[in-house]
């Protein structure tokens, strides 16, 4: 569903993404790698925020190109790592703007919506986004992005999330994982994050990226090898244990 062919992208004079070839089908894909590996730049390229220097990216039949922004916005949603807020919009107002609805229509939409309920957004609807705590901000923007991908509202086929777990409390993290696993049956999802234990637990595809290159692509994240964890993530050996079920885990995080 997402096809990345021979993509290169120069980030700075000393760092670039090189020779990326990937084919991503529906499902939840974990994008893992240490800080500065190029995860966010990679997501920026797929979303069309940045233009590739070489190569091509397709989402479905649509080429990712800054000229196609309007069409792209219908088929993919992308949660940025950092959100900026200079104006005191209410959460409801933000949803109204992004969905091109009036505030009353948003209220009706929120009455019995799985995403709004799952992220417990109802008490936040009338709060302003500049006055929310970190986790609340993340929930509000997550809801905005997830609603953009809700198949009954907008049949997008690609969801990109850059560190969606930042600031979320445990209950919402759990809900998000369940929701994404469910949604992943229909659309391609790429999540960049640092929750290695989570990835090691779930039998979901994962892409490991390091120093601007794809290190490995695995169809089952439980197959991540010890050497990968030691080399790519610079973990000390004594931090790794194997559970009784044979799953690798990192202790102390």
């Amino acid at each position: 569903m997402i096809k990345v062919t021979n993509v290169s992208y120069k980030i700075s004079n000393v760092f670039e993404l090189q020779d990326i070839n990937l084919s991503i089908s529906p499902g939840v894909h974990h994008l893992l790698g240490p800080n500065g590996a190029g995860k966010t730049s990679f997501l920026n390229l797929i979303s069309g925020l940045c233009a590739v220097d070489k190569g091509s990216i397709f989402i479905g039949n649509l080429e990712v190109d800054p000229l196609n922004l309007r069409a792209l916005s219908k088929v993919r949603a992308y949660l940025l790592q950092k959100q900026v807020a200079h104006f005191a919009l209410t959460v409801k107002g933000m949803l109204a703007i992004t969905l091109s609805l009036t505030e009353n229509e948003v209220e009706n939409l929120c009455i019995d919506n799985i995403i709004i309920n799952g992220l417990d957004l109802k008490p936040l609807l009338n709060r302003v986004i500049t006055g929310l705590s970190g986790g609340e901000t993340q929930r509000a923007h997550l809801a905005r992005v997830l609603i953009h991908c809700a198949q009954d509202i907008n049949p997008a086929c690609c969801l990109l999330l850059d560190e969606p777990f930042t600031g979320l409390d445990v209950a919402h993290k759990l809900w998000l994982n369940q929701y994404l696993s469910h949604l992943g049956k229909k659309i391609a999802i790429i999540i960049s994050h640092h929750e290695l234990n989570l990835a090691l637990n779930l039998a979901q595809p994962c892409i490991i990226i390091n120093k601007g290159r794809i290190h490995s692509v695995l169809s089952d994240s439980r197959d991540i090898e010890i050497t990968t964890l030691l080399d790519v993530f610079n973990l000390p050996k004594h931090a790794l244990i194997e559970t009784n079920e044979g799953i690798l885990q990192i202790i102390g995080i």
Partner: peptide, 14 residues
């Protein structure tokens, strides 16, 4: 309206 959410988000919405 979309500019309220920052340049990058506005870009993402087309």
């Amino acid at each position: 309206n979309l500019l309220y959410l920052g340049d990058q988000n506005a870009n993402l919405y087309g």
